[in-house]
Design a protein around this nucleic acid. Structure first.
Lengths: 152, 152
DNA sequence: CTCGCAATCTGCAACTCGTGCAGACAATCA
DNA sequence: TGATTGTCTGCACGAGTTGCAGATTGCGAG
């Protein structure tokens, strides 16, 4: 997504108002590579603006997504994740902690696809699964444990 | 997943009991390519066995999944989908009606991946998005409409 | 700078999907 | 046939998300 300043202009241009809540969320998302959930963003936002509503966070995320500034990810059960990186990229998800990271794939067109007859594709998303660096060293095989989000 | 008969044997072998409910669900899933949700399966099951509990459907699906007979798909917001096809394949999802279809991809190894350093991948799933044959002819571009599930 | 309208925010209720629990029930084995 | 478990059902509960209504506030007009 674009910079907070650009987004401010874009929102104004669409007749949307600029509120402190929205500006805060713009800032929290800009350059954010953590693929946060709405709740996670709400925690961050609350720290800087006590009293902000979770409902407002959802609303602003929805607005940004419909403007194409944000990608909404539903890669696993549980909360959706939001990705301000809207360049052409893919994801890797840790089976243990749920962490997401951006992955870049080239020569996608070299793959050979069967079974798409009649289907009009407009995109393809690859999700790698496995263990992130932290979980891989912490617990080389399988079990239950987490070093970050996905908790409770 | 294997045939109802094979599953019956497998369940017995694990000390699990064979109940009419389970057998029904085995039959409903065998060869099923609709990637049904738990609710959808429950509807099917209820038609043949009124009184069966949604809870039982969930339970059996969980059992099958943990035995590796079933793949659980979380490709979009909303209910999870269940796929009795556990061969190596991928999926295409219609943006309109939510329909899923199986897709087979070859020469996956020809792709070039960046950003996986330190990550230990154990799999990769490709999801194609776009319009299914029905939705593509019904409504060549965009709007709201559906010809099957994903409803309400 | 002030006013006023419309957009926004907040808090809460409601809804969907899925799971935990307890008591009734039934598959299996001796 | 009877005892022993595992299973089924129904219900309550929890997470995640959205709908709604009233209070609030951004922002252009005057």
């Amino acid at each position: 997504m674009r910079s907070p300043a650009d987004l401010t202009a874009a929102f104004r241009q669409q007749g949307l108002k600029i509120t402190p809540q929205r500006q805060l969320i713009f800032r929290l998302l800009h350059g954010n590579e953590e693929h946060p959930s709405a709740e996670a963003l709400y925690e961050l936002a609350s720290a800087q603006m006590p009293g902000i509503s979770l409902r407002t966070v959802y609303q602003t995320l929805t607005d940004l997504a419909s403007m194409g500034e944000l990608q909404v990810l539903s890669l696993a059960p549980g909360a959706q994740r939001f990705d301000p990186n809207v360049t052409d990229h893919h994801h890797a998800r840790c089976n243990d902690c749920g962490q997401l990271r951006d992955v870049y794939v080239e020569r996608m067109l070299d793959i050979e696809v069967h079974g798409l007859d009649g289907f009009q594709p407009d995109g393809a998303a690859i999700v790698f699964t496995g263990l992130c660096d932290v979980c891989a060293t912490t617990r080389p095989s399988a079990d239950l444990h987490q070093h970050t989000n996905n908790s409770k």
